[in-house]
Amino acid sequence: MLNVRRDICGYCGCCVSVCPEGALELIDAYLAVDEKCTSCGICAKVCPLGALEVTHEK
């Protein structure tokens, strides 16, 4: 699943623009992730601050 590090996120919306599923939305000052997220990691790659991480549950 996708984990948003709120302490790092600068809520800029860079990730929202590249999400192929439309699963992210920047709602004022926080990033919302919905059930369409496939944990593809594209957003985590482009984040200028490194605020997003795909975690794999064991």
Binding site: G13, S17, V18, E25, V46
Partner: peptide
């Protein structure tokens, strides 16, 4: 850049990774 509205209306606005 974080546009959602047109996406909700069915228009693909996704920016290719290499072009963000």
């Amino acid at each position: 850049v974080e546009s959602k509205f047109s996406k909700w209306c069915g228009i693909d606005t996704t920016v290719p990774v290499r072009e963000i």
